[in-house]
């Protein structure tokens, strides 16, 4: 009899406690996909100067300098800018890894351009972003495109246009 009482009590306790556990596992009342972007960006921002130094000290000097500069840029952002970036980071994480790699390769190629050419290519990004898919296709085949940009820049802009086809972007 006592054993049955203990069993019933234990079962009741498990049932009572299982709801909050499973609710927490599924994100509780939170609706929609989890915001991994918020976690990542907040993690980066919350690192103390010592933690940042320790985290980056093993990188080669040039890469370390670039990472530090990116952290500073993150610090300077307003809450609204950060929120927008977190949302976009979430969407980016949902891209197939091949597309993510294409974006990174394109961005590295872009960063390798001389600063004045970077501004022209950035204007090209903006222009492509505002176009429809058909307009982009026509623009990339146009004389204007081939005259305004060299081969290296054209490849960057073509990759950018390709990325814009992703439904997540």
């Amino acid at each position: 009899m006592k054993a049955r009482l203990w069993g019933a009590g234990t079962l009741l306790l498990m049932l009572l406690t299982s709801y909050p556990a499973s609710a927490r596992q599924s994100g509780g009342a939170q609706k929609g996909p989890a915001r991994t972007g918020a976690n990542t960006i907040e993690r980066l921002r919350r690192m103390s100067p010592e933690e940042r130094k320790k985290a980056l000290e093993k990188l080669p000097p040039e890469r370390r300098r670039q990472a530090e500069e990116r952290l500073r840029r993150l610090d300077r952002m307003s809450a609204a800018e950060r929120d927008d970036l977190e949302r976009r980071y979430d969407n980016f994480q949902r891209l197939p890894s091949a597309r993510q790699e294409l974006a990174r390769k394109m961005f590295r190629n872009f960063n390798d351009l001389p600063p004045d050419r970077r501004n022209d290519v950035r204007a090209g990004f903006e222009r492509l972003r505002r176009m429809s898919s058909a307009e982009r296709s026509a623009f990339l085949k146009s004389r204007e495109f081939s005259q305004q940009y060299n081969r290296r820049e054209q490849a960057i802009l073509e990759d950018y246009a390709e990325l814009l086809q992703s439904p997540q972007l």
Partner: peptide, 18 residues
Amino acid sequence: VERMLEDVDMLDQLKLNA
């Protein structure tokens, strides 16, 4: 860390999905 920062910076600069 470097990868995360690069991704965030890329999205910020290129407005990929803005």
